[in-house]
Design a protein around this nucleic acid. Structure first.
Lengths: 141, 141
DNA sequence: TGTACGGGTTAAAGTAACTTTAAGGGCAAG
DNA sequence: CTTGCCCTTAAAGTTACTTTAACCCGTACA
């Protein structure tokens, strides 16, 4: 596999940035990535700047930003005239959301653990109908 | 609103169990709920046992079980012959998944916070291109 | 009596963010 | 020369619903 940084195949770009080739085509279709250059056989060829852009997008997605938010962030990160304070604010918002999600999940973990606990202490050999956990889960608010 | 527990409308069931009416119809379509009884005007009518079943499903979903897992759990919870150990195991698995998700999110929170931090200390008034955070995010692995 | 309102009904399309499938072309190695 | 891997496209599938369009029904009010 020849990986001259100046004309990577989609497969190479995919491996380099750790996304799938269909996802790259999908990103192109929704214009998150620009239309790729093509070689004589009409195959997409990519360069180092594509690696950078896709890596940036991948990071955004890893950070939990939506496609549309990632699109904004790409635009902001390429802007020479606008500051990055908007991006900073977006990131700060994400931090808040993530904190909320973490507490939510912790509460959920606790509930589930007590469900398991109850199941273990009250109905190890019982039937579903007798299971205390199930009984409680069928009770409306 | 007459809410004789013996013939609730879909709207009443929805409110009681805190799910939307379209969702109830959807659950019926995918056979997570049985075909509802109809009144003379062909409208769905529900009873207390429907409230129990839907509440149970709602709980499963709140616990983060997929529709298919919830379907299993409903079947298990209604079984008179099979124990609930399988459900207990499913719940225990969820706990593990949730723990992993929590650590993941915490790590993410940390990264994002340092991103915000960097942005604040190095480029409050800079352009996107100069922003240290952006620069780093474009660097492949 | 008429009509406006707040329910209910259906099927179908939209959503996010891809993944999977089908059906095919190109090219290098064995 | 054929096997195998990579590439191409468009379209359908996925999850768990939500939204929309177009309609029916019973009742409360003027």
């Amino acid at each position: 596999m020849h990986l001259s940084t100046n004309s990577m195949t989609i497969g190479t770009l995919a491996k380099t940035c750790d996304v799938s080739a269909p996802t790259i085509r999908y990103y192109e279709k929704i214009a998150l990535l620009p239309l790729a250059n093509r070689n004589a056989s009409d195959q997409r060829r990519y360069t180092a700047s594509d690696v950078e852009r896709l890596t940036f997008i991948r990071r955004c997605r890893d950070f939990g930003f939506s496609i549309e938010q990632s699109r904004d962030l790409v635009a902001l990160s390429n802007s020479t005239t606008r500051g990055c304070s908007h991006s900073r604010d977006l990131a700060a918002e994400r931090v808040t959301e993530i904190r909320a999600k973490v507490s939510e999940l912790k509460a959920l973990e606790k509930s589930l653990k007590s469900l398991v606990q109850k199941c273990e202490t009250t109905c190890i050999d019982g039937t579903g109908n007798d299971c205390a956990s199930f009984r409680d889960m069928r009770m409306p608010a």
